[in-house]
Design a protein around this nucleic acid. Sequence first.
DNA 1: TAAAAATAAATTGCGCGCAACCTAATTGCC
DNA 2: GGCAATTAGGTTGCGCGCAATTTATTTTTA
Lengths: 155, 155
Amino acid sequence: MSNNKIDQEVDNQTSDLVIEKQVCFSLYSAANAIIRAYRPMLKALDLTYPQYLVMIVLWNDDGINVKELGHKLHLDSGTLTPLLKRLEGKELLTRQRGLEDERVREIFLTEQGIQLKNLAETIPNQMLCKSKLPVEELLTLKESCDKMCDNLQDE
Amino acid sequence: MSNNKIDQEVDNQTSDLVIEKQVCFSLYSAANAIIRAYRPMLKALDLTYPQYLVMIVLWNDDGINVKELGHKLHLDSGTLTPLLKRLEGKELLTRQRGLEDERVREIFLTEQGIQLKNLAETIPNQMLCKSKLPVEELLTLKESCDKMCDNLQDE
DNA sequence: TAAAAATAAATTGCGCGCAACCTAATTGCC
DNA sequence: GGCAATTAGGTTGCGCGCAATTTATTTTTA
């Protein structure tokens, strides 16, 4: 009789390389699940989740430029430029060169872009229901995610 | 004098469509930050983060098939098939047809794939340090993410 | 047992994320 | 003023994630 089984068990207790133990994997899977859950709701607005995030920023900060937008969403121009072009193609926004600094692109909502907010108002609450988690737990979760994000940033 | 400022502030208190309030955005950003943080560590193993996840599963469950792997990682064949082909190209694994059921693909580590685990052993602890969060908080975070994932799943 | 249904994996196509690189405009410094 | 350094944004290329569809195999059922 070999003692492989026992050796393996001992090994698994020692090693952290087990998928079920990985906090990062849980976070990664939850993020994927969230984007998946948003999809049917956002289909009505013809938006992807990252596009929806951009629209949220613009609804509160119309005229923001690409750098500031990237800072708020933790995304770079390699992601944002094509995404913004797609939203421009849907006529939700326009991308205008800064008057005082020609390097800057300022993003302005069109009337259609402004109006889309009406269709989006119910989404946060729908998502809250889908998560089936108490608000208090969600706030704690958010705090930890924000800290994680900040801590991984400055290296 | 217009009362635009006041109107806006009242509006923002009412509406949840503000990026800073969005739990989902925090989770999404944290997940992106995590993958970004893994990248320099995984470069030494010539793996992406999703490839690393597949390897972790295989190190503990060699011979697993695509369906079971997809179930563990919450990913489908559209993601896994090309990813597994890339790992096969790196000669870390082989993809063999099941003997009793020809539809099934069973994934087996090569000697090289098995040996790669040695280089990976230090990664979980490195990541723990980078996060700068107490283990207790990380465990709570993981619990919430797992619940979120489960709750969004069954709809 | 032959046709229908179910199942496992593969394929196609699109939109991210991001590294690496490039371009154009602005700022700093002598 | 002129040239180097910096800055903002754009481009290219690759690897996911996933919806939608297809192919091949197995199971069910009439």
